[in-house]
Write a protein that binds this DNA or RNA. Structure first.
Length: 391
DNA sequence: TCTGGGGTCCTAGGACCC
DNA sequence: TCTGGGGTCCTAGGACCC
């Protein structure tokens, strides 16, 4: 039986919240992001602003040039999270299965509910009406037999859209899209495909995967192979393998002064440690990110044998990494500090994880010696040693 | 155009182990 | 003496997404 997956996306979410909170700017070119005149970018913008070619990630200076009369408002993350939580809770209550994937997007699974709830489009329409009435927000919904197509469908019908890709019509739907519309195809992939003379989805579909691999790598090639055939890609289905957490700042003017960098590193390290503690998580790996004046950037990381326990320790390690990487005079535009391979752990789990591998090894060694003394004639070696002999 | 901040996953090489 | 296959961990860089 075909699955019925919804991808639900709130339209121009940040900008819409700003319009709700300030009706005077409703319907205008609203741009949420950095302060004009600074080095920041556009975080989100209203559809009115998009008519001027403005989009997320565009430098704010460029947005200002394109639309000087736009309303520029700062990002109020707390407020968006507050509204997001309410909307997501409503969706979760409405669907048998629910999975939030970002602040303004979620998947729901309505498979096998038709007799109970009616046809998928009807469910979708009533969801749209409810969200509009309750929160004043427009959403777009894509319906498909699996997540990947559902996501593309909602993208294709926004804003305030509804589109169902029925079982067996996946390829036809895909052929109505452009290569760049595929989730997972960014700028680089697009230009590499172009080098291979691939400019459309049907062209990509008929291209031998073995010739794709040298250009895009194994994983990306397999991904695209399945994607253009409308096959289930299993996106967002697995638990993340590892987890990382970081903070970074871009300076208004590039920095060459070590004292300033030290101060910032300490603050960033504090933020990282606070979040580790706040989420009852731990990490042994710390990394820094440096972006230089010319936008070239580098990451350096170090893994410790013990868990990181204080912001001072994190800061000290971060500083060491910085000194290793930075010549002391190249202007720095951005600095970041983070923890990688973060694991959640309550007190019990932490205790176990705290057992130092070297200490453990030593204890094993001591035990063997004790046993050997106790039982003369006993042939005893470590299991790992036995294994070694077998291989 | 002059490019944020927070993430994820993949690749590739080296070290080390069995 | 020349040579293996596979796994895990670590590091660095790159692509992509919201």
């Amino acid at each position: 039986m075909a699955k019925v997956i919804f991808h639900i996306d709130i339209d121009a979410f940040y900008a819409s919240v700003e319009e709700l909170d300030n009706p005077l700017i409703k319907g205008k070119a609203v741009i949420v992001g950095a302060k004009p005149g600074t080095r920041g970018v556009v975080s989100a913008c209203s559809y009115e602003a998009r008519r001027y070619g403005i989009h997320s990630a565009m430098p704010i200076s460029e947005a200002q040039r394109r639309c000087p009369h736009a309303i520029f408002v700062p990002v109020r993350m707390k407020r968006y999270l507050e509204i997001s939580k309410k909307v997501m809770r409503m969706l979760e209550d409405a669907a048998p299965e629910f999975q939030q994937i970002s602040i303004d997007e979620a998947f729901t699974d309505f498979s096998g509910t038709e007799r109970l709830l009616g046809p998928p489009e009807e469910i979708a329409r009533s969801l749209k009406t409810t969200i509009k009435q309750e929160f004043g927000l427009n959403i777009s919904i894509g319906i498909a037999p699996h997540r990947y197509l559902a996501k593309l469908a909602s993208d294709a019908c926004k804003p305030d859209g509804l589109l169902q890709v029925k079982e067996g019509t996946g390829q036809a739907f895909l052929d109505s899209l452009q290569l760049k519309d595929l989730w997972g195809v960014g700028k680089k992939t697009l230009s590499r495909l172009e080098e291979l003379n691939i400019r459309t989805i049907p062209q990509l579909r008929s291209f031998p995967i073995d010739l794709l691999k040298p250009m895009l790598g194994e994983a990306a090639s397999e991904f695209l192979y399945k994607a253009v055939r409308g096959k289930d890609l299993d996106i967002f289905s697995a638990e993340p393998k590892s987890h990382s957490l970081s903070h970074e700042v871009t300076f208004e003017t590039d920095i060459k002064d070590l004292e300033t960098l030290k101060k910032v590193i300490l603050e960033l390290s504090q933020a990282v440690m606070d979040r580790l503690l706040g989420s009852e998580s731990q990490s042994r790996t710390i990394f820094i990110k440096i972006r230089y004046y010319d936008f070239s950037s580098t990451l350096a990381q170090q893994t410790m044998k013990h868990w990181l326990t204080s912001s001072e320790e994190i800061a000290a390690l971060a500083l060491e990494l910085l000194k290793k990487r930075w010549d002391g005079h190249t202007p720095i535009r951005l600095i970041g500090v983070g923890a990688a391979q973060v694991v959640r752990g309550g007190a019990q789990q932490q205790l176990e994880l705290f057992i130092d591998p070297l200490a453990k090894k030593k204890r094993v060694e001591e035990t063997i010696i004790r046993l050997k003394q106790k039982m003369k004639g006993l042939k005893l070696t470590k299991a790992s040693f036995i294994k070694h002999e077998e291989s």
